[in-house]
Design a protein around this nucleic acid. Structure first.
Lengths: 232, 232
DNA sequence: TTTTGGTATTTGATGCAACAAAAATCTTAT
DNA sequence: ATAAGATTTTTGTTGCATCAAATACCAAAA
């Protein structure tokens, strides 16, 4: 007859009902899918995207594909090479410089704020992620390293409690993601990232906001050095 | 907004051609129009937007209207109250806190970077804008004040030379814009903003990056105090 | 009056077709 | 060969119809 989960909520209810999973439109799913591919580096710089090809790849019509592409262009994750040509942008040194400066400001802020909110459970999870990174490094499984590294950073950032901030950081990663792939192999050798992560971890445990911020900033600068040598 | 060169360039050309005005799709124009209304405070918090109503108001079909609304939701300038209800969001204190923290980081960075790039012509333009602000304050023309204030800030930010940074700052202003309208009258009385602007101007003239940053940060904090008392 | 339940209307999502414009391809002249 | 021109193909844009779902409305009951 009628479902309890639809319509406006009753006047009172003994307990809080579980939130219904958000209705996700095809456009939103297409966006999330493309975004994920981009941030993971599945789409290399220079790759050309057309609405029809994306639509076909995602088994949807052009409308949701258009939604996703338009949105990604707005975020700078895709660029118009011509009026009818969108590609995954090649990272230039100027762009990297700018993105790094913003990353230092934003991720530094997030890291700093996170220090007051991390729980022991978070620390455990971060240590687990670091372990995944170490193993991935040992076994040369760079995709795994990249994934775990991303999770490590964003777990911290999410603990800042600042939703908007995390989203903005995500758009930044979106822009360097495609070039990250070319980064590894060599980067793996020098495990500079590892010690930065350890410092961050210790700062988090001590509730030392400044230390956490410094560690993350170091990590970002370290990544910059490697990426910049790759861009020239 | 985007790059100006379109098409492939001929084999050789004596000089750089003037940029052709970029083909702007209806969707993009709808987006720009809505964005402008939002940032200017023409749309009050709580205003409900439907694709059909926006389409009708802008004399286009639902497709460009949809583009604009979807994009604005993605940027946080509009929110889904329900699955089929989008409104101009009411600014909460938590949101204001977060946005202010990010503004301090981002606008502070932009102001700081701008110090090295401003030209004497920029200074003149900034003084002219400040004059417009003062006059608007005298004559209680708050719309004028808001506009000139925005132009004052963004002229500085643009001189940071960081395109992405300016765009991100814009999305921040987009979120507080609708509530700015309610701010004035009272805010106009205490002209705290004026002295901050003067400090920024002097810092810009002296090339004192730290001073410029401090002035802008002060301005942001000052705005925060007034806005927060309004939100409760 | 306030709340509930049912009905009617409006809404966003989606696919699709037509069209003008751009990109790619092929041709020809130098 | 190379570059310019002509062609064919592909592309984004836009409007619109359809449909399930959400919202607004209204009447009846408490």
């Amino acid at each position: 007859m009628h479902d309890a989960t639809k319509g406006r909520k009753p006047a009172s209810l003994p307990g809080e009902l579980a939130a219904i999973d958000r209705h996700q439109s095809l456009g939103e799913r297409a966006y999330a899918s493309l975004k994920d591919s981009l941030i993971r580096g599945a789409l290399r710089p220079g790759t050309k995207l057309t609405m029809r090809s994306v639509a076909q790849a995602l088994h949807v019509s052009t409308t949701p594909a258009r939604d996703a592409i338009t949105r990604l262009i707005g975020e700078g994750a895709l660029v118009n090479l011509g009026p009818k040509t969108v590609i995954v942008p090649q990272l230039t040194l100027a762009a990297l410089d700018e993105i790094t400066a913003i990353r230092l400001a934003l991720e530094g802020l997030a890291a700093q704020k996170a220090a007051a909110n991390v729980t022991p459970a978070d620390i455990v999870e971060l240590e687990r992620l670091q372990e995944r990174i170490n193993q991935g490094l040992d076994e040369s499984r760079y995709t795994e390293v990249l994934d775990a590294n991303k999770d490590f950073h964003f777990l911290i950032y999410r603990r800042s409690g600042m939703v908007r901030l995390v989203i903005m950081i995500e758009t930044l990663w979106l822009q360097i993601g495609p070039s990250f792939n070319d980064l590894y192999p060599e980067f793996a050798q020098s495990r500079t990232g590892v010690s930065n992560h350890m410092w961050a971890l210790h700062g988090l445990q001590d509730g030392d906001a400044a230390a956490v911020r410094a560690a993350i900033e170091n990590d970002i600068r370290s990544g910059y050095r490697h990426l910049s040598s790759l861009v020239e």
